[in-house]
Nucleic acid binder design. Structure first.
Length: 268
DNA sequence: GCACATGTTCTCGG
DNA sequence: CCCGAGAACATGTG
């Protein structure tokens, strides 16, 4: 379930524990078909690496090491990254023991998460494909990247090569907040409306990070607490409930294979 | 048993 | 190349 705000909360909580530490030991579950880089390579390349930064691009977390190599993590749908001690369970796939003695664990029930070691000087096709990060993109770049598309605006927002970090929840919330119907082709939306969407998206992502992200089913912060932003959702998961603006019943439909929530009166 | 689930990636159409 | 529909991935919940 993690989208940009949840991944950023994870990054911020892990940063003080992880950055500045050397990786001492690597443990992987076996068997596991969870890794883009084989457990054998992870165990050979990671020990001894000094972590100099913990970064995020879109929904990806990247640990950067002093030699220039990086560890790429994607939480998929149910991934959790934590420095807490976890009770033994079959869903922990990777544990990194740091020089401080603390452990970073990657737990993922559905195994849609990804872990990849990127050697110094190498790039990752996954990273190369990503568009600008949704939290830091400026209004001009945002409108330029969307104005040329004939895709439905929601489908465009979910496309990580156009804009990185927005998932189903925040796409629905941002479109509601800016009064745009999710099915509208992006290129038919005025510049002013796209600028409004940019500012509402930024406001919502920032507020969600402040609130600790959204917990629907699985997401937990690294400290084990629930997120808080789900209480502020206006439309996501609220089909049939009253629109917070006009009181009419909120609609639901499938768009691009994804569950989509909107108000047909307030969003045009 | 069935429907549904927050993400990514690929294939097969047009 | 652009776009959409659908499936696949693996496992859980209601």
């Amino acid at each position: 379930l993690p989208e940009l705000p949840e991944v950023e909360v994870v990054r911020r909580q892990l940063e003080p524990t992880w950055v500045g530490q050397t990786i001492a030991e690597v443990w992987t579950a076996s068997p596991s078909y969870f890794f883009l880089t084989s457990p054998r390579i992870l165990k050979r390349r990671l020990p001894g690496q000094l972590t100099v930064a913990l970064e995020r691009h879109g929904k990806y977390i990247l640990a950067r090491f002093d030699g220039g190599s990086r560890l790429l993590c994607h939480l998929g749908m149910t991934g959790q990254l934590t420095a807490r001690a976890l009770a033994p369970d079959p869903h922990v796939h990777l544990r990194l023991t740091l020089s401080s003695g603390e452990q970073i664990s990657f737990r993922d029930v559905r195994k849609f998460g990804k872990v990849e070691f990127i050697s110094e000087g190498s790039s990752s096709p996954r990273l190369d494909k990503l568009g600008p990060d949704a939290l830091t993109i400026d209004a001009d770049t945002f409108t330029a990247r969307l104005q040329s598309r004939s895709l439905a605006i929601k489908t465009a927002l979910l496309n990580q090569s156009i804009l990185a970090g927005v998932g189903n929840i925040y796409a629905d919330e941002a479109l509601f907040a800016s009064g745009i119907v999710p099915t509208r082709p992006a290129r038919t939306i005025s510049r002013a409306k796209l600028e409004r969407l940019h500012s509402e998206l930024n406001r919502i992502l920032t507020a969600s990070i402040q609130g600790g992200g959204s917990t629907i089913n699985d997401y937990l912060k690294p400290d084990g607490a629930l997120g808080g932003y789900q209480d502020w959702h206006q439309v996501y998961g609220k089909r049939g409930e009253a629109c917070p603006l006009c009181g009419r019943s909120l609609r639901h439909r499938v768009l691009g294979g994804r569950s989509t929530h909107y108000c047909s009166h307030c969003q045009r």
